[in-house]
Design a protein around this nucleic acid. Structure first.
Length: 571
RNA sequence: CGGGGUGUAGCUCAGCCUGGUAGAGCACUUGGUUCGGGACCAAGGGGCCGCAGGUUCAAAUCCUGUCACCCCGACCA
């Protein structure tokens, strides 16, 4: 490919509304352009990268036994009403009407459509298990799109759905997909972790996320430094604390005239936050609920949401409700002496404390030497808190560390959630109608492009991992327009490289060397060959890897062997 | 949805307070010089100042409305 025929669209200045490295570099390198909030065009250069990701994903899905199909991006309302998600999906669903005023949505995901296909086309257990996938543009009307294509409203996703008659079959496919995902991200040269995850609104039981490790990631993941335990912090558990020691102190009231927060109380009473219990009053559908946490821990709202007492949603109690229930303002609530009608649920670590400090349910007063059972009723113990770095891993091996990640893949087992509501049925060996169980498996194809850049860039631009690079080799003949013999040599080398199967971009613009080098480094082509009259006379070609400090001269006759050795042929 | 901000040339922005013929740098075109790390000189092209009303002899500038976009939060596979 010649730069004179391939619009590079690079820009020197940093665009105003680019917040992260990948967003900035994708705009500067001319990969994408914004059309509206969270909606981007893929320019030729960006599309080449997107296609490379797709190719790897497609190849590995096919290798894993999945079958490709393509479903519509626009879907009728009726289908979504069957699953109940026309209402439930909320504002994330982009709705629209056709000329007959029939309602449609732009598909944010395709469970409904795939179930519709399977229920119409698959009749017999002999056709199962079946895994279908597509690579498709999706639209989710995110409240706040940001970071370019990382959290866009319109994005490219690979989604796969598997159908099974029994759990063992689903487990097998789930494992196959897990392995295929690991192979995909390994092939793309990304540093990633597979982590246990919350299945969220998709619903279901078992779920793993594939997180590309990056400082700018929106998710926090916890992993053991000595085992392969890894989980999203939404879900991660710490090892349970040792049993509670017996009480050794008497309960004592202390005046805390102005101290409301844990930090103020611990400073005033000269105790550590680990010896305090903080109490949160929540308003649930059925009444007030008190949750107790150790002073240095934070409530994990996803874990809390799974408590039976909080089914159907909850909010923090208002100041008035707190005052009415505990006869103390916010800041002085504690588990001792709360009305019996309020269940007290303590996090495991809070429940393991003896002789702790807590609010006294009286204005400007705290308690020291408080103990569960003796002083405070304990309805139940649960895991309620978010893990912190340094917690012991739940498998007993090592300590948890916390890193940030970009979610690029998510696999779920979702039971019969969709097949039941969508009335998918197949006949089993006995001729009995069975509702299949399903798994679903997503990969954020366009997000991977951004994630790869987050992991691979420097101050000059992108540094593509070879499998993602839009071109493998940048061929730069310096001042070629001045030298007919250089022109001839450059064209010959270009053709030779193309014939050898490499993706080559030759810069035939009449540019000075500086801008040429800068452009090729910005767009991140991993290998650079420079030809000049000087090198021609010396019978060499200059080679420099994108990460190399210095270029090296390769004898012209050795070049082919050199490249075969250092470059992988494109997929 | 709440709070804050911005809309002026392809990009980054000045001009607005204090109304009076539309600006700079970068990018682009042409000519010349330069030529291994984002050159220089000269000459050009390019803007209904987001949109709609209003005030005024006169509006990018003041007023009202509206739309879009950005940031923080809430929210969110």
């Amino acid at each position: 490919m010649l730069t004179s025929r391939f619009p590079l669209c690079t820009i020197k200045e940093t665009p105003a509304d680019a917040d992260t490295a990948s967003h900035r570099l994708m705009l500067r390198a001319g990969m994408i352009r914004k059309l509206a909030a969270g909606i981007y065009s893929w320019l030729p250069l960006g599309l080449r990268v997107l296609r490379k990701v797709e190719a790897v994903v497609r190849e590995e899905m096919l290798r894993a036994g999945a079958v490709e199909l393509l479903m519509p991006s626009v879907q009728p309302r009726e289908l979504w009403e069957e699953s109940g998600r026309w209402e439930k999906y909320g504002h994330l669903l982009l709705r629209m009407q056709d000329r007959k005023e029939q309602w449609f949505c732009y598909g944010p995901t395709h469970e409904e459509v795939i179930c519709n296909i399977v229920r119409n086309e698959i009749r017999s257990y002999k056709q199962l298990p079946l895994t279908l996938f597509q690579i498709q543009t999706k639209f989710r009307d995110e409240i706040r799109p940001r970071f370019g294509v990382m959290r866009a409203r319109e994005f490219v996703m690979k989604d796969a759905y598997s159908f099974h008659l029994d759990q063992a079959s689903l487990d097998t496919t789930y494992r196959v997909m897990y392995d295929a995902y690991a192979r995909i991200f390994t092939r793309l040269d990304l540093k990633f972790r597979a982590v246990q995850a919350d299945s969220g609104d998709i619903g279901g039981d078992l779920s793993h996320e594939f997180q590309v490790l990056a400082e700018s990631g929106e998710d926090a993941i916890a992993f053991s430094d000595q085992s392969d335990y890894a989980a999203n912090v939404e879900l991660a558990q710490a090892a349970p604390p040792p049993p509670r020691p017996p009480p050794s102190q008497a309960l004592k009231r202390v005046a805390t005239p102005t101290q409301k927060t844990i930090a103020e109380v611990t400073a005033f009473l000269r105790v550590v936050p680990q010896q305090c219990v903080k109490t949160l009053l929540l308003r649930s559908k059925t009444g007030l609920v008190a949750l107790c946490l150790r002073g240095d821990h934070e409530l994990n709202e996803i874990k809390a949401g799974k408590l039976p007492e909080l089914q159907g949603g909850w909010t923090l109690a208002t100041e008035a409700e707190v005052l009415a229930a505990s006869s103390a303002p916010v800041g002085f609530i504690g588990p001792v002496g709360l009305p019996a009608s309020i269940p007290v649920i303590a996090d495991r670590d809070a429940a393991a404390l003896a002789d702790f400090v807590c609010g006294a349910n009286a204005d400007r007063t705290h308690l020291t030497g408080a103990n569960w059972e003796r002083d405070a009723h304990l309805t139940r113990v649960a895991d309620l808190r978010s893990v912190v770095a340094g917690d012991r891993s739940p498998d007993g091996k090592g300590q948890l560390k916390i890193a940030r990640g970009i979610e690029v893949g998510h696999i779920f087992q979702n039971g019969r959630k969709y097949t039941e509501s969508m009335h998918v049925g197949v006949l089993d060996e006995q001729g009995k109608l069975q509702t299949p169980i399903t798994g679903c498996y997503g990969i954020g194809v366009s997000r991977i492009v951004a994630a790869a850049i987050e992991q691979n860039h420097d101050e000059r631009g992108i540094i593509w991992p070879q499998p993602l690079a839009p071109f493998q080799i940048a061929l730069l003949p310096l001042n070629m327009h001045k030298s007919p013999k250089l022109q001839t040599a450059a064209q010959a080398l270009h053709q030779e490289l193309v014939a050898a199967g490499f993706d080559v971009l030759m810069d035939d613009r009449e540019l000075r060397p500086g801008p040429m080098f800068a452009d090729m480094e910005l767009i991140g082509i991993p290998h650079r060959l420079v030809l000049s009259d000087r090198s021609l006379d010396a019978g060499t070609v200059e080679y420099k890897g994108r990460r190399d400090e210095k270029p090296q001269d390769i004898a012209r006759q050795d070049l082919s062997a050199f490249l075969q050795k250092h470059l992988r042929l494109p997929v």
